[in-house]
Design a protein around this nucleic acid. Sequence first.
DNA 1: CGCCAGATTGAGGAATATCAAACAGAGTGG
DNA 2: CCACTCTGTTTGATATTCCTCAATCTGGCG
Lengths: 235, 235
Amino acid sequence: MIIKRSDCLQCRMRDQSIFAGLNTEELCSLGMEVQDIEGQHGDFLYRMGEPARYAYTLRNGAVKLVSSLESGQEVIVRLLHHGDLLGFEGMQGEHHRHSAIVLAPSQLCRLDLAELQRLSERLPKVRAAILQRWQDALQKSEERIIELGAKRAEARLATFLLQWAQRYPQLRSLPFPLTRTDIAAFLGLSTEHVSRIMADFKRQALIQEQGGQLEILKPQNVAHIAGMPDEHKSD
Amino acid sequence: MIIKRSDCLQCRMRDQSIFAGLNTEELCSLGMEVQDIEGQHGDFLYRMGEPARYAYTLRNGAVKLVSSLESGQEVIVRLLHHGDLLGFEGMQGEHHRHSAIVLAPSQLCRLDLAELQRLSERLPKVRAAILQRWQDALQKSEERIIELGAKRAEARLATFLLQWAQRYPQLRSLPFPLTRTDIAAFLGLSTEHVSRIMADFKRQALIQEQGGQLEILKPQNVAHIAGMPDEHKSD
DNA sequence: CGCCAGATTGAGGAATATCAAACAGAGTGG
DNA sequence: CCACTCTGTTTGATATTCCTCAATCTGGCG
């Protein structure tokens, strides 16, 4: 894991970050120390139970938030892509509720939580941005409760693949650094069951996989399995 | 459903509300219209898809937040008790993502969202209180994801009963206005399966039920089934 | 090549859903 | 007070979904 100082002024993600809407002067006057982090597959950004000192913005790559139970079982609580925030549960001065583990080579910004706290008091725009992310996280979280509570394995997996694809709108072929075990830990299924369904999908030529890349060949059919209302039939 | 004007100055819940920490003068100067609402079993406070105009504080009683799928299936996204907030997803000017349905006779405060918005800009204490609730909601939501993803029916139900009991710390016998179908919609199970497990628990004399009241006779055993670490053995 | 982690497949069994029926209790109208 | 209905619960039988265990297969890599 490589850590160096970051120059927010040059950042290409700035307009999607929580500092969006601030002009250059405001940004300069933040006086905030921001680190630039490069993470490789398997790196821990932080571990469950540690006191939270930093928040992160994921500029690029993919990260999983994992909660480990006493049984040894691991559940993936959230999956993060470019633009997502993590570590913010520490804003209220708490400990990390999950471990953050890098899935694919990732670039992140690391912000000091205490500084961020002060900053958000001072700048309504930053505050609003953070609140918005918080709300988004809650919404997604509730959507997953519905998935887990109401749908069967096939439908859950189909939904999951479509949602993953939505995060890479331009690409036909998606980066897909998850193992079957990861998917299982996210969907509340066994590794084998996920493998079976994925193999089925492939046999039906709904999807295609090669070298960490995934392609959804028949999005409409997948959406149908997911139990989605038929949106965007023209796609 | 009865609606009348409310007098926040007299409110007994004030120190647990989002207006906690404000002194009497500040509270008077809010200039905020607050309604006092009495809801009966089955009343809708709002419906999924409606534009959000109000937020609510549940002072007393119980409310369920329900999301209805196209299949007709219903999932209970959250269960609310005294002190909980609802309807705040509208703070960002959106529509309600679920329907709020009264379970037991309830008293609520209804706040105008636009006014609340302005208020939270002005008063850091109010803002912080709301942010805190938001974080709590996210945390609980993530805990449920873990429950649904990792635990089996018995353990889920046991956890659920204990968490319900936690909301009524003083009482041996708890108000319990949920039907088996409600519990099932909350835990992602079938009504019959919930009924079977509840009946089992009763036969094992772990719990006892009568007239909408529930008593947990052997909390430790229930906690064991829930897969909890053995906290508070002295209880 | 051998090795290893991950993926796939199969067989059997456990957990849960579904369908159907019986049952209990709380009104409600006679 | 009793029959009646309605809603929610319980129970049983059966089907389905999903998990577990074990074996095999695959591709990357030293």
